[in-house]
Computed example of a mutant assay.
Amino acid sequence: MIGIFMRAVPALFAFLFGAAAPAQASQDIPDQYPGSVLYSKPVEFIPNVFSAIGATAPPTYENSGHNNNLSFILTGEGVVVVNGGASWKLAEALHEEIKKVTDQPVRLVVNENGQGHAMLGNSYWRAQGVKIVAQEEAAQEFGATGYDSLAAAERIQKEKADGTEVVLPDETFEESYRVAFGSFPIEVLNLGPAHSPGDAVVWLPEQSLVISGDMAFHERMLPIFEETDTAAWLVSWDEGFEALNATYVIPGHGHPTNMDQVRRYTKDYLVYLRGKIRAHLDAGGSLADAYYVDQSPYRHLDTFEELATRNAGRVYEQMEFE
């Protein structure tokens, strides 16, 4: 199966086993699956684990808001979906793709965080009678911001957002949620503060594969929000995420890869940026100048232009009081 996948997606395996090539994703790549609102057709990464890779650009009408990865696992006793999707129509389109490869029913949807593209599709899954699970802080975040996320989706996606409603998860957990359908023990873990409140990863210990959500990035620049604690993210990385020792990583954005790649563009980027800001602070530098610290080693990443200066400013504001 992996051999077939290598022939189908050679660039992906350059990431997996080459690790030295620059990221290949681009905001200029057009919709890869014109027959569907999904940005790309789900592909089987390892046996029974599929992912529809979203655009690495910000959400647009053209990509239908599908700018994160929508994954699913065929357990033999039902399907586990990772991410509700950014709309009813995206969730419905993913479900249609699931039906093409299995007659197993969808039994569980895991929301990887409280952002709109993880939870707005919950409305579709609730209508199908599927249980939805998220970390408790993610559910609280979506409860507070869900209607803003829906308004943004309706503004960007227009009629593609029809039918979408704000639906909270059925069940929440604090540190871990475990299920064992068929031959796939699945662990949903909150490894500590990271990109946004309630980030969760889906860990398949027997396959040594982690669906990392926004704990890990590699083809696009990671965004640092006002609530993102970059120092705590580094602790969560070392003590939680790195400790998984995963062989395979399906990130929240971008193609499946390995730990070396996501370490290079997540942990190493955070360390790099914090180092630049620390030197800037020690030299008495201002916030206005902090926006322009050198981030050129990461200029090739998608969304660099949208995020680099904003990231620098937010890290400055955090580190000023550390």
Rank of each mutant, 00 (worst) to 15 (best):
V262H: 00
I250T: 05
G85V: 01
P256M: 07
L281I: 12
A194C: 01
P105V: 00
A246V: 00
M221R: 12
N122R: 01
F181V: 07
L16R: 01
I224M: 06
D260M: 13
P185R: 13
D199N: 11
E239M: 06
N245I: 03
S212V: 06
G3F: 15
N111L: 10
K160T: 04
S286H: 08
I98N: 04
F181Q: 03
G54S: 01
H117A: 12
D103V: 06
K89I: 10
E62F: 10
G121H: 02
G252D: 04
S286M: 11
D282G: 08
N69Y: 07
A290W: 05
K89P: 01
E137H: 11
E171N: 09
K267V: 03
M215A: 07
S87M: 08
E97Y: 14
Q128S: 10
D238N: 15
A91M: 05
P251G: 06
V167C: 10
E137M: 14
S26A: 14
A21Q: 15
I156L: 11
P256W: 00
E322I: 04
G163R: 09
A138N: 03
A161T: 11
A14D: 09
P185G: 14
E174M: 10
Y248T: 04
Q157P: 01
V202Y: 10
E136G: 00
N122H: 03
F13G: 00
I211L: 15
P223Q: 14
E226T: 05
A21L: 15
E239W: 10
Y265A: 03
E137R: 14
Y292A: 11
W237H: 13
G146T: 09
A127T: 09
V101C: 08
V80Y: 09
M259S: 12
F181A: 08
T145A: 15
A21E: 13
G3P: 08
H255P: 00
G275P: 14
N69W: 02
G84F: 03
V133M: 05
E206Q: 03
G252W: 06
A118M: 06
Y147R: 13
F5I: 07
S176M: 07
G35R: 09
S40I: 00
R7V: 07
Y33D: 13
P47W: 15
P34M: 11
S123L: 08
D103E: 15
Y291P: 12
